Lab assay of single mutants.
Amino acid sequence: MGMPNRKYADGEVVMGRWPGSVLYYEVQVTSYDDASHLYTVKYKDGTELALKESDIRLQS
């Protein structure tokens, strides 16, 4: 078993793309699913969504 190939840690605050949009919002990573390679993130309004790594970026 190798290390999970994840870029962002639980609790890390990053920018997540809103689905169907080009806009990124501040989100907190809450979990990562090794099987689906999706991150569960929480937006400031409390919305929780699963995002692909390509829809997440570090805060500038």
Rank of each mutant, 00 (worst) to 15 (best):
M1I: 13
M1T: 15
M1K: 01
G2A: 10
G2I: 11
G2P: 14
M3D: 13
N5G: 14
N5Y: 10
R6Y: 03
R6K: 05
K7G: 04
Y8M: 00
Y8E: 01
A9W: 08
A9I: 06
D10E: 06
G11S: 04
G11I: 02
E12H: 04
V13A: 06
V13E: 06
V13F: 14
V13I: 15
V13L: 12
V13G: 03
V14K: 01
V14G: 02
M15R: 05
G16D: 01
G16H: 03
G16C: 12
R17T: 04
W18D: 03
W18T: 06
P19D: 04
P19T: 03
G20D: 08
V22P: 12
V22N: 15
L23T: 12
Y24V: 03
Y24L: 04
Y25W: 07
Y25K: 10
Y25N: 05
Y25V: 14
V27G: 11
V27E: 00
Q28D: 02
Q28Y: 09
V29E: 00
V29A: 00
V29H: 00
V29C: 01
T30G: 04
T30F: 08
T30N: 06
T30W: 08
T30H: 08
S31T: 07
S31L: 04
S31H: 12
Y32P: 00
Y32T: 00
D33F: 02
D33Q: 03
D34I: 12
D34M: 09
A35W: 11
H37D: 11
H37R: 13
L38P: 00
L38V: 09
L38M: 13
Y39R: 00
Y39V: 02
Y39T: 01
T40A: 06
T40I: 13
T40M: 12
T40F: 10
V41W: 00
K42C: 09
K42M: 13
K42V: 14
K42Y: 08
Y43F: 13
Y43D: 08
D45L: 02
G46P: 01
G46R: 04
G46T: 05
T47K: 08
E48S: 11
E48M: 14
E48A: 07
L49V: 11
L49F: 15
L49Y: 14
A50L: 15
A50T: 14
L51Q: 02
K52P: 14
K52E: 12
S54Y: 08
D55V: 02
D55N: 05
I56D: 01
R57I: 11
L58G: 14
L58K: 15
S60V: 13
S60W: 11
